[in-house]
């Protein structure tokens, strides 16, 4: 249903442009002959609803049109770019969890301790560091000044995994900063709430150690809102990924989108937006299912 609404929106984008969309598709310097051909192909002289059906049928078959710039099918280009985003998002989330979970456990175990305060204050800082703000100082500190990591460049992971990881670390950290803060704050408060519940008191009274109570009893019921937040977060991650890819020159969907906007490659822009929007909806859908799997209380409700 939502995918359907999105597809209408993305379809209408081309028609927001003044004039014949065929000009937009073919770019500047289109010959009248080519315009006539595209007009016929897409049925631009037919009613809007027919055009939409034609476009949707093709999109469902994986045909998102052809870029006038590269003269390659948009779907092929997206196929090359999508893994970059996937890797970027997954790496950044791994980093975020690797930092946020231990931080939250430490902080929740001893509330109002010095570490708790330091973590909580720094989470405010991280919350205030969007990709385009933290990215530049990061590049300056570890790429320009000390040359630990390259500032730009991309090698596919399947050809040289080590080089790839080396190049992806800085972009992933940039993207991860905001997530760390969100997950830390969520998990910390949820853990503290869980630790006050009766089944934890019971576990303690059975003589379990603090460590056992924390990892075997408290952690799992405290992770639900983090999971939901992760799914919702994917939306802003996609936005952040656009900035990060632009900043580090990674050939992902974001760079494709921004370059497409600059060069007025509207078919490409349309394809990228449709793909990302559908991916976002799918992730949320999967998270809903996962939620039911992890939390039996929701399953039986």
């Amino acid at each position: 249903m939502i995918v359907f609404v999105i597809s209408i929106g993305v379809f209408l984008l081309l028609h927001l442009l003044p004039g014949n969309p065929a000009y937009a598709i073919l770019g500047p310097g289109a010959t009248p002959l080519a315009v006539a051909k595209v007009t016929r192909q897409l049925g631009l002289n037919k009613p809007l609803i027919d055009q939409y059906v034609t476009w949707l049928t093709r999109a469902l078959h994986g045909n998102l049109g052809t870029s006038y710039l590269t003269e390659q099918p948009v779907s092929t280009t997206i196929g090359h770019a999508f893994p970059v985003d996937l890797e970027l998002v997954i790496l950044s989330q791994l980093i975020a969890f690797a930092l946020a979970i231990p931080m939250a456990i430490t902080a929740a175990r001893r509330q109002a301790s010095i570490l708790d305060r330091i973590f909580t204050m720094s989470s405010f800082g991280m919350l205030s560091l969007p990709a385009f703000v933290i990215g530049v100082p990061l590049v300056l500190a570890v790429a320009v000044t000390v040359h630990w990591f390259p500032a730009t460049g991309y090698t596919p992971i399947y050809s040289q995994p080590i080089t790839n990881l080396h190049e992806m670390i800085l972009p992933s950290i940039t993207l991860a900063v905001g997530s760390v803060a969100i997950y830390y704050r969520l998990l910390r408060t949820d853990l503290i709430a869980t630790l006050q519940e009766e089944f934890i008191t019971l576990a303690r009274s059975k003589g379990l150690s603090n460590r056992e109570v924390m990892y075997r009893h408290a952690l799992r019921p405290s992770t639900f809102s983090v999971l939901t937040a992760t799914a919702i977060n994917v939306g802003s991650l996609l936005g952040g990924a656009v900035v990060v890819e632009y900043l580090f020159g990674l050939p992902g969907m974001g760079l494709l989108l921004v370059n497409g906007i600059y060069s007025r490659d509207y078919v490409m822009v349309q394809g990228v937006i449709l793909t990302l929007a559908v991916a976002f909806v799918l992730v949320n859908f999967l998270a809903d299912i996962l939620y039911r799997v992890i939390d039996p209380r929701v399953r039986h409700a």
């Binding site: 939502i2 609404v5 999105i6 929106g9 993305v10 984008l13 081309l14 927001l16 442009l17 994917v234 939306g235 802003s236 996609l238 936005g239 656009v242 989108l257 921004v258 497409g260 906007i261 509207y266 822009v269 937006i273 990302l276 929007a277 976002f280 909806v281 949320n284």
Partner: peptide, 19 residues
């Protein structure tokens, strides 16, 4: 809910692209 289902920055970029 329907509006929230669309990633916001993407919407902005889409509009920026076409106008």
């Amino acid at each position: 809910y329907i509006i929230l289902a669309f990633p916001p920055l993407l919407l902005l970029l889409a509009i920026a692209a076409f106008s």
